[in-house]
Amino acid sequence: MTTLIALEHLRKVYGSGETQVVALDDISLAIDHGEFVAVMGPSGSGKSTAMNIIGCLDTPTAGTYRFDGREVTTLDRDARALLRRGQIGFVFQGFNLLKRTTALENVELPLVYRGVARAERRRLARDALAKVGLEGREGHSQAELSGGQQQRVAIARAIVTAPALLLADEPTGNLDSERSRDIMTLLAGLNRDAGITIVMVTHEPDMAAFARRRVRFLDGRILADERLAS
């Protein structure tokens, strides 16, 4: 297996002087293609900061980050946007669908920025919605979908571009346990069948159990990194 994410001696410091906060303190982490990693830890442990850097939404103060062998810490804002556009899908706790917009249009959005033609866009978006089990709901807007369905739309939006990496930030945080398990089963299936690398932040051990590797953060450091036998 080749390495997809390689973090080396990563530091992230907010503010300066006396108000300085060290969010990440010398983090090194390697994640291979095809892994399903659960990132755990209390709030303020630095896991969200790490996720933002892995997702190329933020840059570290020091250290290096290579994505699929490519140094990304030195990339400018537009280059990082292009990397996200091509390689990374995001799933958020709060779903973050566009309001007053149909499921299909939401899923099409990343393809719009990729310059995919309309008909092709439609087809890919329908396929992605089918993969998350939402056939027949293409025309529904956010308000007409349940929480679980909204998160499925968000997952379809994240995978419609066939990204190398799917970043999920507490994807089940707003869902009841039954819906949560559905979503986790879906993510595990995408990881297994489509080979999408998944890095997921979660508080809940039940959900982390779906992953095959657990990384625990505490006070800006990695406390534990355990692989589970599948």
Binding site: G55, L57, R77, D78, A81, L82, L83, R84, R85, G86, G89, F90, N96, L98, K99, L109, P110, Y113, R114, R157
Partner: peptide, 16 residues
């Protein structure tokens, strides 16, 4: 703001 965040996260460029 949130919509803009989503657009930026999925890879919209500043100029877009």
């Amino acid at each position: 703001t949130r919509e803009i965040g989503i657009r930026l996260a999925i890879g919209a460029l500043e100029r877009e």
